[in-house]
């Protein structure tokens, strides 16, 4: 009952943000149905998983398809595209998806206010600040603060600490 990972990549599949809250090889793609019979098979590496996720999501038509898609025997994805960037959360199958859209939206709003009209380059050049924002919002696979004002106040304090 938690976020397994948070991912952000652009339309070309270049990863801008990754956060695993648990060892990522717990989840297998449907393609790996041999896995259920054969536990000895190699666990997918994080990079393989990200590539699979990218292929799955970038192929989806965002006009005619929902923001939710089942990914593996234990993971489903909730994602949303903002301009050229996809924000993806992997969650447990029994979780209810829609609230995670709010997670993503709040995260993007906070990034936007913190950087001021945030764009992909802000995340590239200030990757460490982006992770700081991420950590102030999510730890242990759970959201820890939902007030935008509180978050921005805290972030700007931390940013000025030097």
């Amino acid at each position: 009952m938690a976020i397994q990972f948070i991912l952000c990549f652009n339309k070309q599949g270049v990863v801008r943000l990754v956060r695993w809250y648990e060892m990522c090889n717990g989840g297998m793609n449907r393609n790996g149905n041999a896995v259920t019979n054969n536990n000895a098979s190699d666990p997918s590496s994080p990079q393989d998983l990200i590539a699979q996720i990218y292929r799955l999501i970038s192929a989806r038509d965002h006009k005619h398809q929902s923001n939710f898609v089942e990914f593996s025997e234990r993971t489903k994805l909730v994602y949303k595209r903002y301009a050229g960037l996809y924000f993806v959360m992997g969650i447990d199958l029994q979780d209810e998806e829609p609230i995670y859209l709010s997670h993503i939206h709040l995260f993007v709003e906070v990034l936007d206010a913190f950087f001021g009209n945030v764009c992909e380059l802000d995340i590239v050049f200030n990757f460490y600040k982006t992770y700081m924002v991420l950590d102030e919002m999510f730890i242990g696979g759970e959201i820890q603060e939902v007030s935008k004002d509180m978050l921005l106040e805290r972030l700007s304090t931390l940013d000025r600490l030097g």
Binding site: Y82, V108, E109, D112, A113, N117, V118, C119, L121, D122
Partner: peptide
């Protein structure tokens, strides 16, 4: 620089 949300806030950072 291309923003992916349309807003006109000043940078907080």
């Amino acid at each position: 620089k291309k923003s992916f949300i349309t807003h006109n806030n000043n940078a907080a950072s």
